[in-house]
Design a binder for these strands. Structure first.
Lengths: 340, 340
DNA sequence: ATTAACCTTTTAAATGTTTAGAGTATGAAA
DNA sequence: TTTCATACTCTAAACATTTAAAAGGTTAAT
């Protein structure tokens, strides 16, 4: 492990001052051609690369953004991340990634840790715990300290910052309407994410669609929970009622519903049509029958979030107003719904 | 955006020197109780947090590790990453993540970028392109410069560094043997990753099992390719031969094989048994019938890799010999294979 | 009273970089 | 020959931190 070349070492070796070396390497007109050539050649020989930390200290920025997501194994978040990484890379930014594991405390801790110089700004999707407890003070504190945050998907209503969301309400409304248009009279709602802001919005969209079509709400075929356990049992209970349509707010819910429907001998889509939100890539489109899904454009969400953040970081203006970008979802019709 | 508190500002405000403040906050015995209390209180009031970059420059390390993986949408890599993140977090390290997108050039560029002070060490799974071209110089260069690298899964044979691998050869051997034990006489091999080191090793394991059991190699039922396109067509061609077992080297391959088998009217596992390597979480165990898989313990791989790297970073010894840790896979018997 | 010992604080250097400003030499113009 | 501009290089400060070493002051011991 040979010591890395620094300006200081080069300066000493060539009997010039550190600043001469710096200026020569930055091609300053103050330095004579002869000296420049000499220094540049020597630097190349020694494979000199400016030390990033020295630069960071000088510039008081790091060209690094911190991403905090609840869980990388959820492929929606993985997709968003890949969008972030793509844009960050294009603009010369690094990405530090932290997993909150849905813990409010780890979220807060990470914000604290990274905001003291390590990163220039954050992109965050709020942890379940923080959403449940409406515990958003750690975000406000960081923003007040001057570190910008962009939130996506799971956002904190009260916190003033840039946000990127999916049109959860509208797409739930439209999807439910789609089921109604297909002739479904008894549409079950399956939600295992009723603790999340997005879950609530989607459920509201469903209810709105029923209301618009003068369909009475049947609470026997509505499952709104936040527990992972007994999901199967709970869904099976829903099946004890008459249903001809299922609207699932999460990929897990729709996959589980499909399996149960098939097991109970229903024909999909002939007897029951199923539409579900799809976080992921793998499951839904590969099942038989493949699931009609509402795709959430995870990659695009990530790209937009990264652009918002970097634009703010590089803006000369002090007080750019905060933006909320809504990404439109798209209904991907597959085999689990009849054709109109 | 109020300016963040620094030692300098505190020192000025309290009319002491910067070093007094530093020492007081670090609880140095050199400083009197009175002064300590005064400084600590003021620092707390101003919410002083030491600037990490200043520290990094001083300590010449950043407590940050760089992870370079080919693709975060592949859930095997997502799993490994979550293992890395977990250990890193426990030991107080941050993780910068970069996606190589299977590009050798981006891989090299990332190594270059980050190795000049930003990170203390790397964890890498080699890009497809680099593996194809045996283009590993960028790794050696970084290691020579004194930045440690730990490679996992897709490793570079010639490069001297810590490695974490799965026992690809042995597990392919054992899985094929398992199919043979089940009575399969004509076991097809499906590989769409024949360009990767792991793909080659697994194929060799398959061949070795046939050899051991004196089963002639039938090249008509062996598919070794590195192209994603026409995978379905290629697999369908394999089905034109007599087969009663399928050994798939990648999740995609096994899922595709299952669908095709079912479509062609085969009963699984009665007519054909299927075993596949499983990178992911979602697909295989949810299909009907669910797939028997070789699970790769992605999270454990990540944990071990992170431990290896951090141990090396924090070791006082200069020349700790490099290690190669082999993680044992496990056959998860599900519905796509008969019971013995 | 002198000195040693001690306690507390400050100075200065170090990490690697940039850059404003000062300094020096050379050549030309007056 | 003096002066001035020009061309080049160097000094020093800045970013935020730590720490060895020096310095200042008090107390106690000889």
């Amino acid at each position: 492990m040979k010591a890395k070349a620094t300006l200081k070492q080069i300066a000493k070796e060539l009997n010039v001052s550190v600043s001469t070396v710096s200026k020569a390497l930055n091609d300053s007109p103050e330095i004579s051609e002869v000296t420049k050539v000499k220094i540049k050649e020597y630097a190349k020989l020694k494979n000199y690369k400016p030390n990033v930390i020295g630069l960071n200290l000088k510039n008081r920025k790091t060209k690094t953004i911190g991403v905090i997501i609840p869980n990388i194994l959820n492929s929606f978040f993985a997709k968003v991340f890949s969008g972030i990484e793509k844009v960050a890379d294009e603009k010369g930014y690094n990405v530090i990634m932290c997993i909150s594991n849905e813990s409010s405390e780890k979220e807060a801790h990470t914000l604290e840790m990274l905001s003291n110089g390590t990163i220039d700004g954050f992109i965050v999707s709020v942890s379940e715990e923080a959403q449940k407890n409406q515990d958003y003070d750690h975000f406000s504190a960081i923003i007040n300290d001057g570190t910008p945050i962009v939130m996506f998907d799971r956002i904190a209503e009260g916190v003033d910052c840039d946000k990127v969301i999916v049109d959860d309400f509208d797409s739930a409304l439209n999807s439910t309407q789609h089921l109604i248009d297909l002739g479904c009279k008894n549409i079950a709602l399956l939600s295992s994410i009723d603790n999340l802001s997005v879950g609530k919005l989607r459920a509201e969209g469903y209810l709105k669609a029923l209301e618009k079509n003068n369909i009475a709400v049947n609470s026997n075929i509505i499952l709104r929970t936040d527990a992972e356990e007994d999901l199967k049992e709970k869904i099976e209970k829903i099946f004890e009622n008459t249903i001809d349509g299922i609207f699932a707010l999460e990929e897990n819910d729709s996959v589980a519903a499909l399996r149960i429907a098939l097991k109970k001998g229903f024909k999909v889509p002939e007897d029951i049509s199923i539409i579900g939100f799809a976080d992921g890539i793998l499951a839904s489109r590969r099942l038989s029958p493949s699931l009609t899904t509402i795709s959430q454009h995870g990659i695009e969400i990530g790209e937009v979030a990264a652009k918002l953040l970097i634009d703010r970081l590089e803006s000369k203006e002090e007080h750019v107003p905060y933006e909320t970008v809504v990404i439109k979802t798209k209904l991907k019709e597959r085999e689990s719904t009849r054709k109109l």
